[in-house]
């Protein structure tokens, strides 16, 4: 354990450099730069609000905030896991020549996406005032689902990064799977007993939905859902532990497959 920590300390500078590189290169070639991170969720939220609120007549006055909060969390999860999945192959040149702890590639990828995600939360914060939402002390609870989201992302990202080394076509499968996750995360609808009946428990199987739910509770000033909190803690740490073990068991075989 202490060896692991020493190792981490030694490569902390590399971790920072890799995160910086991801973020820098992402915005280097776009004129809007980091502004794009703020603009993009606003535009998609406008579209979703128009379709589901305007055309289908769902939701109320604060529906855009509801959509935005779900969408921001989902797009972090989707974007970061996709990028982490490709991270080992993308850095194969480096992995084959110089010794660097390999977990640093999926880990830095998730972290750089997380930094960008945190910046994009500024939009949500601004929307709270635009839509005149009563911000209470409950908002501090938002930190808990946000942290669990990061842990879940790292765990799933490590699992995918490992699998993708052996199976190139996993990318396509994961995209399809992400579509299922998106539609079951209640980004643009409400989950209640009246529309889903007995099947409402199925939503407990989607950790992302539960994280989004508690995040919304915090944002809208309602108390945190303890059951969802417990479940998401189990999901997040469970995936992290599985991810780490799986990655460490397979990492010596990476080099022969990339």
């Amino acid at each position: 354990m202490s060896r692991l920590f020493d190792n981490f300390n030694k490569y902390r500078f590399l971790l920072v450099e890799l995160i910086k590189k991801d973020i820098k290169l992402k915005y280097r070639r776009s004129y809007l730069g980091i502004l794009w991170t703020l603009l993009e969720p606003l535009l998609t939220t406008a579209v979703l609000t128009f379709v589901f609120g305007g055309l289908l007549g769902k939701g109320g006055r604060t529906f855009p905030v509801y959509i935005l909060s779900g969408r921001l969390l989902y797009s972090f999860f989707a974007g970061s896991t996709k990028a982490a999945m490709k991270s080992i192959r993308k850095n194969s040149g480096m992995i084959k020549k110089v010794y660097v702890p390999k977990y640093i590639y999926p880990f830095s990828t998730i972290l750089s996406n997380y930094v960008i995600f945190l910046i994009s939360l500024v939009v949500l914060f601004a929307s709270l005032f635009v839509f005149d939402i009563n911000v209470t002390f409950h908002i501090l609870w938002a930190l808990v689902p946000l942290l669990l989201l990061l842990i879940l992302g790292v765990g799933i990202g490590m699992i995918l990064a490992t699998l993708a080394v052996f199976f190139r076509d996993l990318e396509y499968l994961w995209s399809v799977f992400l579509m299922i996750v998106m539609y079951t995360s209640a980004i643009f609808y409400h989950v209640d007993y009246s529309s889903f009946g007995e099947k409402v428990w199925l939503f407990n199987l989607n950790p992302l939905y539960l994280i989004i739910m508690n995040f919304r509770n915090a944002v809208f000033g309602t108390p945190i859902d303890i059951k969802a909190l417990l479940l998401t803690t189990i999901y997040s740490f469970g995936s992290l532990i599985i991810g780490i073990i799986f990655f460490y068991k397979q990492q010596d075989k990476f080099i022969m497959n990339i």
Binding site: L14, L18, K21, L25, K96, K97
Partner: peptide, 28 residues
């Protein structure tokens, strides 16, 4: 290791940025 020099460079990064990146890879 002086093996295949420059294999660890990021092509979109400038030379100056790569000094820091590659240096970090080598553990500096």
């Amino acid at each position: 290791p002086l093996l295949e020099l420059g294999a660890g460079f990021d092509s979109q990064y400038t030379g100056a940025e790569n000094i820091y990146l590659y240096g970090a890879v080598l553990g500096y």
